[in-house]
Computed example of a mutant assay.
Amino acid sequence: MSRHKVIYDTDPGVDDAMALVFQALHPDIELLGLTSVFGNATIETTTHNARFLAGRFAPGVPVARGAAAPLERAAPQPLAWIHGDNGLGNIVLGDSAAAPLDPRPAHRFIIDSVRAHPGEVTLLAVGPLTNLALALADDPQIAPLVKQVVVMGGAFGTEGVLGNVTPAAEANILGDPDAADIVFGAPWPVAIVGLDVTQRTIMSQEYLASIRDRGGAAGQFIWDVSRHYEAFISKARS
């Protein structure tokens, strides 16, 4: 039996794509679904990428299309210089069968999945938190039924690590601060993995090459999809 039932709320995005591969292959994780959201690219692109990734690495896992814009603001511009024009480092996606698109909007998929598995579902959110906020607005009573919410986002000045958009703001939280306020104020357990953690978690070129060399098709994908992203990081640090 899987230890963790996970809904992956994501705006893939190179780093989110890599994280999806690791989750799909982890024996202790059962992916219940992917919910797309705007962020690193438009909702059309992030949904397309989520379907491609699920179809290739997590067959049978559905994708639900989520929010195209923040609750109260205009959608941000895609981050093509970071994630490539297609959101996946400009790699050729090929003709892999795409995962099915669930007919429900993402927030409804979240609600129905949590109610189907009360106390078991972890919501893993690595983009703007709009889908989670919409789920709470539609059905506030799901909060105590969620096992945990894990958010990649935020910057708190820990060990001097500030925001990556402004000194006070990290990109995922700034993408929809109104949604973040709702999510962090809800009565469910929340764990926040901020920039003080992510910026210290380094995947070196040597490490990525080792994944490529020993990881089969998935390892080769991790290598390929990270080339554009690594070039951006190297340039930003030079």
Rank of each mutant, 00 (worst) to 15 (best):
R3S: 11
R3G: 13
K5V: 02
I7C: 07
Y8W: 11
Y8G: 01
T10S: 13
P12K: 05
P12H: 09
V14A: 11
V14W: 05
L20P: 00
L20D: 00
F22K: 15
E30M: 06
L31A: 08
L34A: 12
V37D: 07
V37R: 02
V37M: 05
A41K: 06
T42D: 10
I43K: 07
I43V: 12
E44D: 15
E44Y: 11
E44Q: 15
T46G: 04
R51Q: 12
R51H: 07
F52A: 12
L53C: 01
A54P: 06
R56T: 13
F57S: 02
G60V: 05
P62Y: 03
A64K: 02
A67V: 04
A67C: 12
A69R: 14
A74R: 09
Q77D: 11
L79M: 12
I82H: 06
H83L: 07
G84H: 01
N86W: 01
N86E: 08
G94N: 01
A98V: 14
A98T: 13
P105F: 00
P105L: 00
A106W: 03
A106Q: 00
H107F: 10
H107V: 03
H107L: 02
I110F: 11
I111G: 06
R115Q: 09
H117E: 08
H117P: 07
E120L: 06
E120V: 03
T122Q: 09
T122C: 06
L123S: 02
L123R: 03
A125W: 01
A133Y: 04
A135E: 01
D138P: 03
D138H: 04
A143P: 03
A143C: 04
P144F: 01
L145H: 04
V146C: 01
K147I: 00
V149M: 13
G154F: 04
V161R: 07
V165S: 00
V165D: 05
A169G: 00
I173D: 09
L174M: 10
P177K: 01
A179S: 13
A180K: 00
D181C: 12
D181G: 09
I182N: 05
V183R: 00
G185Y: 07
A186E: 01
W188I: 01
V190I: 14
A191Y: 10
G194M: 02
V197E: 07
V197Y: 05
V197S: 10
T198E: 05
Q199D: 14
T201P: 07
I202W: 11
E206W: 11
Y207A: 15
L208K: 11
R212Q: 15
D213P: 12
R214F: 05
G215T: 12
G216W: 09
A218H: 08
F221T: 10
I222Q: 07
V225M: 02
A231R: 14
F232Y: 14
F232P: 05
I233Y: 08
K235P: 00
A236S: 13
S238W: 02
